[in-house]
Design a protein around this nucleic acid. Structure first.
Lengths: 212, 212
DNA sequence: ACTTGGAGGCAGGCTTGCCTGTTTGTTTAT
DNA sequence: ATAAACAAACAGGCAAGCCTGCCTCCAAGT
């Protein structure tokens, strides 16, 4: 191993620990995940973990924050990665679903359930909910400005996230969420079509509210 | 304590244990729930638990089955409890939501997440998904036959369940799901309206498929 | 340039407490 | 009387946190 500065050592170690935590969270789940699993996966000792994160709650909270940032960035990335001519609402839905049908999506659900016991996690996940909502609205405004004019667009997007979260949740219990997501996407397609048909006439005055 | 027959003793003990399990599941969550908590809450000894349920997995599986039946029955109950003149779709949505915004709803989510590790739980929850889907479709057909004619009604109902599940899930992380559910309900109201407006013309030929 | 002292990074074992399953003993029903 | 229902102590295992000691880096002094 080449020489590394102290700051680099710290940064790399923390990154390894947090990545391992997120992976364990996605694979094993929160309940069955132990700090031993994490240090084993990260190839470090228990002492290293204790040095950087005094308690398990601190570790998980930090992992949640990292997960939030990671997903926020990746969301923009994936959506802007599709070629401009393929940027249909249906494609956007596929991207959104790929965002939930993901190991990190599972980790997020595990964290959400675990947050019931950790109030600190609640605030992190609360931040994430706002952040994701903002990014989503922003993306819609950028790529589908006509959709952003729809009256209940804010509720629609929130519902969309809840819908996909619920789908991913039921996938944990063995449901074939992949095909369900596909059919739901078709369903949402005709829904949005109907919305547009019946709202393009006069109701476009009501724009999306800035704050809840 | 008066004299009870053996069958009564068994039945009551099992009921107490399963109720306590479901309560602990809803309150403490699956991860932090121990068999000690359960016997303490049920006011019985560890031996009694061991006698009726040899392992924790057996106990939880049995509790899940009881929860499924319980919720199935309660669903019909709550929906048929509203006076006939108030049986609007909006009211039905409120009933459906009350079905998720419930301690047993929380317990169900906990079980769903836990099912990722227990394959036996998966089959129980799979049964439940089918059962709930069937009951929902049945109820819609009985109370809102015109809605049952809509083209994507099966996907719509499935999405509705997923949506509410996702809402309840985010409520675990501190979101004020109550108000969100209310606004989503309004949103769904206009949505259904639009669906009806634009689908009452020709597309009523496609009825809901019997099997996926 | 070289050394030296200190501080932070890190390894691995220990320990206390809890959790599950088992076993032995007691009560209750048939 | 005999078997089932129940109680209570017991045993093994595991997880989280702590603790001691070693190693690596960096800065200050010479």
């Amino acid at each position: 191993m080449e020489r590394r500065s102290q700051a680099e050592r710290t940064e790399q170690m923390r990154a390894r620990l947090l990545s391992a935590t997120i992976e364990c969270l996605a694979e094993t789940g929160y309940g069955r995940m132990s700090t031993n699993d994490i240090v084993r996966r990260a190839r470090v000792s228990r002492g290293a973990l204790a040095h950087h994160f005094p308690t398990k709650a601190a570790l998980v909270t930090a992992a949640a924050e990292r997960l939030v940032d990671q997903r926020g960035a990746e969301f923009r990335e994936r959506l802007s990665a599709v070629e401009p001519e393929r940027r249909t609402p249906d494609e956007a839905l596929a991207v959104l679903w790929s965002f939930y049908d993901d190991p990190t999506g599972l980790a997020l659900i595990e964290l959400t359930v675990a947050a019931r016991a950790y109030p600190e996690l609640k605030v992190v996940l609360g931040r994430m909910a706002e952040q994701i909502g903002a990014i989503t609205a922003e993306m819609v405004l950028e790529y589908f400005p006509d959709l952003a004019q729809l009256p209940f667009i804010e509720e629609a997007l929130r519902s969309l996230h809840a819908l996909y979260a619920g789908l991913a949740l039921s996938a944990m219990a063995g449901a074939e969420a992949e095909v369900q997501a596909q059919r739901v996407r078709e369903f949402l397609g005709v829904l949005a079509l109907n919305m547009q048909v019946s709202t393009t006439k006069p109701q476009s005055s009501k724009t999306l509210r800035s704050k809840q």
